[in-house]
Nucleic acid binder design. Structure first.
Length: 443
DNA sequence: AATATATCCAACCGCCTTAGC
DNA sequence: TGCTAAGGCGGTTGGATATAT
């Protein structure tokens, strides 16, 4: 296989995208959806390969992207997820609404790895560096080959256990057992029932988690609702909610509420707040999710200041006087996707028929490893998937004003054009400012 | 002020998987 | 069953920018 065929073609532009190209692509996808990516550049009048268009859309033009700096919570979540998932950036990104795998990968490589090392934590194994070094020394003294359990570089993938996941013969043998590289005591998840486990910090056996709740797990929404008593185990990763001590730069776990993983890992939650208050932000769509000017809508929205078409179903302009969100706590702004809300959606928020339809439509991602997380994320994912789906269901341009077909077949008149400037006002002002700086002006 | 170095991040590359034939 | 095109993913690169010397 190797190189994509379209890349062989001559005269294809490479490198940074110009504002004109962005506008062409944006306009095309807004009107028609992307459909087959390989045909997009031709239809949109772009001298790019389809792959490049896809990447540009996913990483930059997509309207549901959240731009700007990562919050501390997001960084912590990435670290936690990386401890469980390794370099599975797309899976990590799937749990951070509005963030792309590329963005997270860059953050990790440029920032988070460094931070972890500064805190004395190996970014590959997520173990204390001292422990790694000791193991290293022991191995050297024993003359054993440095196959596993050592090193701080990314090159030694066996350390993280990821390699084992790719080797079924090893994986099956270590199911529920310790892999050679995971020497800390691990209590089988089935034994980690709720508060009974509160006193003990437990390790996350990556192999076990991914095997049991990852790859082959196809949880249905109703299954998830039925998992209210799913086993929990407490997160042992101190950075999860830790604050950095200004004194020595090391993380402190003092006064940190215990965080709990669902059985499959995933986003930890504060068992006190998340279970005591439906409004708590267990897993929420950040208020800043759609830039600053939109808040979750019931249905519809639009109007003079409408967001790009795909926003209209779920997002509407925030009420006048509502300040732009300044943090990622969405508990006070509109719809929360916390666990209870999500459960409501699947169990009593929709009819049985709708549930069935939803289940049919949903391709349960294999990477949704936690029942809690799965439920919540599925809620979010469905929002997005509706948007993406609808892109492919667009009517041709000759439809008056362009019609946007919803998953349910309803149609809404859409603006015929969404200029780059409009888009920039709505979605990612920071980046368009950058563009403006880079290219002079837009329009 | 000029140069060197570090950092960031958008985009590319190559591989793997999947779908369609 | 095998082939091909396309989608998707993770690793890597290279240009732009920031910071240090």
């Amino acid at each position: 296989m190797g190189r994509h065929s379209c890349c062989y073609k001559q005269k294809l532009r490479k490198g940074l995208w110009s504002p004109e190209e962005d506008e062409k692509l944006l306009r095309h996808i807004t009107k028609y959806g992307h459909g087959c990516w390989s045909s997009v550049p031709k239809q949109a009048g772009l001298q790019r390969c389809g792959k490049s268009c896809r990447l540009r859309w996913i990483n930059y033009l997509r309207p549901d992207l959240k731009r700007g700096a990562f919050s501390q919570q997001e960084e912590n979540l990435i670290i936690e997820l990386h401890a469980v998932l390794g370099n599975r950036w797309s899976q990590i990104a799937a749990q951070l609404p509005g963030r792309t795998d590329n963005e997270i990968k860059n953050l990790w490589n440029s920032c988070l790895k460094k931070k972890l090392r500064q805190r004395g934590i190996d970014p590959v194994t997520h173990k204390p560096l001292s422990e790694i070094e000791n193991a290293d020394e022991n191995k050297n003294m024993n003359g054993s080959s440095p196959v596993s359990g050592s090193g701080t570089g990314d090159e030694d993938k066996s350390v993280s256990g990821e390699l084992n996941l790719l080797r079924p013969e090893i994986h099956s043998k270590t199911r529920g057992l310790q892999s050679p590289t995971q020497q800390q005591p691990t209590i089988p998840i089935s034994d980690c029932g709720g508060a009974a486990a509160a006193g003990s910090l437990m390790s996350t056996n990556k192999d076990f988690l991914l095997d049991r709740f990852g790859g082959n797990c196809h949880q249905s929404p109703t299954d998830l609702v039925g998992h209210l008593n799913f086993p929990l185990h407490q997160l042992n990763y101190p950075a999860a909610a830790a604050s950095t001590s200004p004194a020595d730069g090391r993380i402190s776990t003092n006064s940190i509420p215990p965080l709990w993983y669902g059985s499959g890992g995933g986003k930890p939650f504060d068992i006190n707040s998340d279970f005591s208050s439906p409004a708590a932000t267990g897993i929420s769509l950040p208020a800043s999710f759609f830039s600053n000017n939109y808040k979750p809508a019931s249905v519809g929205g639009g109007g003079e200041n409408s967001p790009p078409p795909s926003f209209n179903r779920f997002w509407e302009p925030a009420a006048a006087g509502v300040p732009p969100s300044s943090n990622n706590n969405s508990s006070s702004s509109g719809r929360s996707s916390s666990f209870f809300d999500t459960a409501a959606i699947f169990s009593w928020g929709i009819s049985d028929a709708e549930k069935g339809q939803a289940q049919d439509e949903i391709k349960w991602p294999e990477y949704l490893t936690s029942p809690l997380l799965s439920a919540s994320l599925q809620n979010q994912t469905q929002l997005y998937s509706n948007e993406i789906k609808s892109e492919s269901q667009l009517l041709p341009e000759n439809s008056a004003g362009g019609m946007w077909i919803h998953g349910g077949g309803q149609q809404e008149p859409q603006p015929t054009t969404t200029t780059l400037q409009q888009f920039s006002d709505l979605s990612c002002p920071k980046d368009f400012q950058r563009l403006t700086a880079a290219y002079g002006h837009i329009n």
